[in-house]
Simulated scan of single mutants.
Amino acid sequence: MRHEQSTTASHEDHAPIVPREGLNFGLDGDIPKYWMANDAFKTRFFDAMSTLFPMGEKFFITSVREFRDGVTTPKLQQEVTNFIRQEAQHTLIHRQFNERLKAQGVDIDSINAQLETLFFVDAPKVSTATQRLAATAALEHLTSMMCTCFFERKELLEASDPRVRAMYAWHAIEEVEHKAVAFDVLTQVAKAGYLARNISMLTITFGFPVTVARIMNHMFKVDGFSFGQRMKLWAKGLWWFYKPGGLFIPTFGYYMAYYKPGFHPWKVKEMPSYKTWLQVFERTGDPIAAGNALHAAGQ
């Protein structure tokens, strides 16, 4: 699966950013603990991602807001507003999901406290506002990459609970819609150049998976897995991550596009099934039906 940068893509020819509020994913229902193929590693990978979102989205919003007064074009001003509204909804829904994890024994309060210290105490001490915005743009690219590439592959989430899958499908759709906002503020307002944004991407590339891995390991301990069992989970899981055709290898082209001179997020082709989700949601107002349709449209 290749995601090459198009040299003819228009920055104007993309989906609008549409905040969607009051969505019900049935997260208070009888969702299995290991909701993805009854697999502890696969489930806990996505669960760990969910624990990052509330503080992560707050960091994204804060980083963009620091430059909001410098945004002068009405189009980008409106996109920033809609970006903030979408990210606020992501925070709300993932907090609901994270309450399920908390009930399972996952120390959500400690994870939030550590992330809050990292993002809002430690980071400002060692970075500039531009560097934090560059980190946000890099993380938005990685998030959009995962959202796009994961939902293109039907087999990946085939054996998943449709309610959780729908939550991630909705999140994916909105990440696709606003994926260029932080990048545009970074380049147009903060005036960051090629080197600054790529240094941030390299830093995030190494730091992000370490953070996810630490949270996953905590979850495995909570689940009662012994040291030996955890090592077996990691060995099998890392193979799932990095084997040929695994979780991450097919995303490599999308990832590397960020380093190209002249890159812009809208130059990378998006999931062909985006309109499928949109059409079903607009017709039914049901995010679970739309998530099922998005999944069914995968290859």
Rank of each mutant, 00 (worst) to 15 (best):
K75Q: 15
Y254A: 04
R283Y: 08
L195K: 13
D223P: 03
F220K: 02
R65L: 13
K191H: 15
P74V: 09
G291C: 00
D286K: 01
H218R: 15
N217R: 11
E99P: 11
F227M: 13
S200Q: 12
K102Y: 12
A166Q: 00
L52R: 07
F281I: 00
K236Q: 15
H171P: 08
T128D: 09
A15R: 13
Q188N: 08
A123H: 08
N198H: 07
N38A: 14
R2P: 13
C149H: 10
R132C: 00
E270C: 12
A103F: 13
H171R: 02
V181C: 04
A172Q: 04
H264Y: 12
P250V: 00
W266S: 00
L238S: 11
N217E: 14
D30E: 15
L118C: 13
E87Y: 07
V80H: 04
G245W: 08
P32D: 06
R153L: 07
Q78T: 11
L23H: 02
E177M: 02
P32C: 03
A196V: 12
L142E: 12
D286A: 02
Y254H: 09
C147H: 06
W170R: 01
L139M: 10
W170V: 01
A296K: 12
Q279N: 13
D39C: 05
G228P: 03
T91K: 08
M201Q: 06
A297E: 07
M145L: 14
L52T: 14
A196R: 11
R230D: 10
G70V: 06
L195H: 12
V64E: 07
V212Y: 07
W170T: 01
M55F: 09
V210Y: 13
F150L: 03
A134I: 03
G246Q: 07
Q89W: 06
V185A: 02
A257P: 02
I93P: 00
G207A: 11
L76F: 10
T43D: 08
L133F: 06
F263E: 08
E174K: 05
F97Q: 02
I61C: 08
V80P: 01
